[in-house]
């Protein structure tokens, strides 16, 4: 649905287009919020409750598209993955080798998590948990670095300072590192959470 005239728009609009934004990787969160809410109000199904069926349907579809666009573009990681998709690329198409030092970090932490799961002595599990909490900091630092690298590459692309193929390779590398670290953080937090009362 067109925000200006209320008429239906082409179904093939990409998610940047759905929010009326250029296909740029750097997005100001406040601008994204504002566009999402403004457009959302304008095409809200309540406004077309008495409209023709085609208009009602367009309003529903437009609202769904807008919501999806907002969710995907809000998070830099999902935005980066979507941008790769628009460029006909997928993470899984790539060689998924991660840097050796990252694999070593993941292995080290997973080994400690396994030890914690198997520990029966309360004092042993307490000291293991303390060690893992420290590791969590290291993992979070690696995550922060990867996110900074992602933001830097986004800016590089927007400013036309990046050669497309090498940027795509760089984005894939960073995005898969982030995915790996995210899984690891989730595994750590799952182990460190106090056991639920029902458990």
């Amino acid at each position: 649905m067109c925000a200006q005239c209320g008429g239906p728009v082409a179904a093939e609009l990409d998610l940047f287009g759905a929010l009326g934004m250029p296909r740029r990787l750097v997005i100001e969160p406040a601008e994204l919020e504002q566009r999402y809410h403004d457009l959302g109000r304008r095409i809200h199904p309540d406004r077309f409750a008495s409209g023709a069926p085609a208009v009602k349907e367009a309003s529903l579809k437009g609202t769904a598209l807008l919501t999806r666009a907002y969710r995907v573009l809000r998070d830099p990681v999902s935005r980066g993955l979507y941008w790769l998709e628009l460029n006909g690329e997928k993470l899984s198409d790539d060689n998924k080798q991660v840097p050796p030092e990252l694999a070593a970090l993941v292995f080290e932490v997973q080994e400690q998590l396994a030890e914690l799961r198997e520990a029966s002595e309360p004092t042993a599990s307490e000291s293991l948990a303390a060690a893992i909490r420290e590791w969590r900091g290291t993992v979070q630092e690696a995550m922060d670095r990867a996110r900074d690298a992602l933001a830097m590459n986004f800016a590089k692309w927007d400013e036309g300072r990046a050669e497309p193929n090498s940027l795509i390779a760089e984005l894939k590398k960073t995005l898969s590192e982030i995915a790996y670290l995210r899984t690891l953080l989730r595994d750590i937090d799952r182990e460190l959470e106090p056991p639920s009362l029902s458990g």
């Binding site: 993470l91 899984s92 998924k96 080798q97 991660v98 050796p100 990252l102 694999a103 070593a104 993941v106 292995f107 997973q110 898969s176 590192e177 995915a179 790996y180 899984t183 690891l184 595994d187």
Partner: peptide
């Protein structure tokens, strides 16, 4: 050799 698969979180030594 330690290698990892980011998409599923696996790691292998």
């Amino acid at each position: 050799g330690i290698v990892g698969a980011p998409e599923c979180g696996d790691v292998m030594k």
